[in-house]
Simulated scan of single mutants.
Amino acid sequence: MSLISPLLLLLIIVIGTYFQTITGFGLAMIVIGINSAVGLTSVPFIASVVSLVSLVNSGVALPKHLHHIDWRLANTTLLGVIPASVLGVVLLNFLNAQATSILEFLLGCVIGYSGINFALRPRQHKEVSSLRSFFSVGFISGLCGGLFGIPGPPVIFHLYRQPLSLAVTRNMLLLIFACTAFSRSLYEFITTGFPDGTLTTTLLAVPCVAVVTMLTQRFPPPLSVETVRRITFGTLILIGISLIVRSLSALL
């Protein structure tokens, strides 16, 4: 990999960190999506890096905001997230070895679908959904997190439809992503180890992620959160379409 590739990867991570600090999501989808679209590195490699980077982002952003979390809903969601994350890693290793193009197609569908759903501004529920729904969404999100390194789409869509404040939603998402990343990384480290270069890339990204997270919290952007979301949704749709077209061309 040339010098420009790791620098470009770090820039993409910085952009994803910026969006996630503002909205509570976006890091994994943006980084893995752009990386896969331009073919910088493999999906397993970037998924491992993003998992470790997510821990840093949440570690910096969460400590002062734990009081915003609805622990009853969060714990129920995590009961589904953690075992499904492990299952997703197992599926990732199998699919990547058997059919890289199919894996890329699935990744594009997940990202594009999430972008379209969020752009449509789903109507908010009047009452909080059942605990069973939080567990189910947690399981699906954990599967996506283990498989693609992207736990976001199902749980983001579900939480943003709840009658919860933006602060509660944002910090619950950060917590869920951190737990997904931890369980995924721990299982991968114990069973197969991280792909070559993962720790080096993560160590290079850590100071960038920490600084961007702190600066974004201290100096919020002049754009409204709603505007930033729209930009994120549009980016996700473009990334998803790009991945789908690229994978279909390889399959056909």
Rank of each mutant, 00 (worst) to 15 (best):
M1G: 06
M1L: 07
M1R: 06
S2Q: 12
S2G: 11
L3R: 14
L3V: 14
P6C: 04
L7T: 04
L7G: 05
L8R: 03
L9A: 15
L10C: 06
L10Y: 09
I13E: 00
V14R: 07
G16T: 10
T17F: 07
Y18E: 01
F19C: 12
F19T: 14
T21C: 08
F25G: 00
L27T: 07
I30E: 02
I30M: 08
I34S: 03
V38E: 01
V38F: 15
V38P: 03
L40K: 13
T41E: 11
P44N: 15
I46A: 07
A47L: 11
S48F: 03
S48C: 06
V50T: 13
V50C: 14
S51L: 11
S51R: 14
V53S: 10
V53T: 09
L55D: 01
N57S: 14
S58E: 08
S58K: 08
G59P: 03
A61V: 11
K64D: 09
H65A: 14
L66E: 00
H67E: 07
H68R: 14
I69P: 00
D70A: 05
D70N: 06
W71M: 11
R72V: 11
A74Y: 13
T76P: 01
L79C: 15
I82K: 04
I82L: 08
I82W: 02
A84I: 13
A84S: 14
A84K: 10
V86C: 09
L87N: 02
N93D: 13
L95T: 01
L95A: 03
Q98R: 07
A99N: 13
A99K: 11
T100N: 12
T100W: 10
L103H: 13
L103Y: 13
L107I: 08
L107V: 08
V110P: 00
I111A: 07
Y113P: 05
Y113S: 14
G115Y: 06
I116G: 05
N117M: 15
A119K: 15
R121D: 15
R123P: 11
Q124F: 08
Q124T: 09
E127H: 12
V128M: 09
S129D: 12
L131K: 09
L131T: 10
F139N: 00
S141M: 07
L143D: 00
G145S: 07
G149A: 10
P151E: 00
G152L: 02
P154F: 07
F157L: 14
L159R: 03
L159S: 04
R161E: 14
P163M: 11
P163D: 13
L164I: 15
L164K: 15
L164H: 04
L173I: 08
A178P: 03
R184K: 14
L186E: 02
Y187K: 03
E188A: 14
T192Y: 10
T192E: 08
L204I: 02
A205N: 05
V206E: 05
V206K: 09
V209I: 12
V209Y: 00
A210Y: 11
T216M: 15
R218T: 10
F219Y: 13
P220E: 01
P222I: 05
P222A: 09
L223T: 11
S224T: 12
T227M: 09
V228E: 00
R230W: 05
I231T: 12
T232E: 15
T232N: 11
F233R: 01
G234N: 04
G234C: 08
L238I: 09
L238Q: 02
G240F: 06
G240C: 08
S242H: 12
S242F: 13
S242E: 03
S249N: 09
S249G: 06
A250N: 10
L251V: 06
